[in-house]
């Protein structure tokens, strides 16, 4: 892990905080975007049919790896586990919980006879959150996946392509008025491109930085 005082988010050079300050009134706009940097991203692999593996993950982060494809377990406000493949998951934590989760997973999965792996990829990606009534239309401009809530409901995720960038996409929630919130986890070297592409694609709907 990088020392906290040396951390610099991949989108820091875009001055998003200052823009968020200017755009303080977010209601009535088509799209709201923000960067959520430094979240803990821990890749785990193992056999979900092996009770010891599931128990060890459960013990470490108080959550079971989801068995259903393209789903996320846990709440967006705390720790989540995202399905990446039949034997692969991503544990997403709050920034301050990353180190503890990493240590707990490492300790619990390092058991004789248990075939598993834990890899910290926290600093590999950053999270761009996009929400608002037109957020889906913006994503749909660059993503071939059907994002209609009947096909891609809250709690569902996908590894897919948004405007040529490979992303981990999560539909985190739907507001009461039906407005969706999505999270895109893109590799940090792609994040400036992805942000500026999303910003360009949002122009016609009205974009504010949250």
């Amino acid at each position: 892990m990088v020392d906290a005082y040396r951390l610099r988010s991949p989108l820091a050079h875009l001055g998003l905080e200052a823009r968020a300050h200017e755009d303080s009134e977010l209601s009535g706009t088509g799209v709201v975007m923000r960067e959520i940097p430094y979240r803990g991203l821990i890749n785990i692999r193992g056999d979900v049919k092996d009770k010891n593996f599931v128990d060890a993950v459960q013990k470490a982060v108080k959550l079971s790896p989801p068995v259903d494809p393209n789903t996320v377990s846990g709440k967006p406000t705390t720790t989540r586990i995202m399905w990446l493949g039949p034997d692969e998951w991503l544990v997403i934590t709050k920034p301050e919980g990353a180190e503890r989760a990493m240590n707990a997973l490492w300790k619990n999965l390092k058991v004789d006879g248990l075939h598993a792996s834990v890899t910290d990829s926290t600093h590999a990606r950053t999270c761009i959150e996009i929400s608002g009534p037109r957020a889906r239309e913006v994503l749909q401009k660059g993503c071939a996946l059907d994002l209609h809530p009947s096909k891609f409901a809250p709690g569902q995720c996908a590894q897919t392509i948004v405007s040529k960038v490979g992303v981990m996409l999560i539909h985190t929630a739907t507001a009461r008025n039906g407005d969706p919130t999505y999270e895109l986890y893109a590799l940090r070297s792609f994040s400036t491109y992805l942000w500026t592409w999303l910003e360009d694609a949002s122009q016609e709907f009205g974009l504010k930085v949250g």
């Binding site: 494809p69 071939a144 590894q159 392509i161």
Partner: peptide, 17 residues
């Protein structure tokens, strides 16, 4: 659009493969 059904993820666009 040319859709391919991944046996793990389901129907996805050809460009993902």
């Amino acid at each position: 659009m040319f859709l391919i059904t991944c046996p793990f993820c389901g129907e996805r666009e050809e460009s993902e493969f």
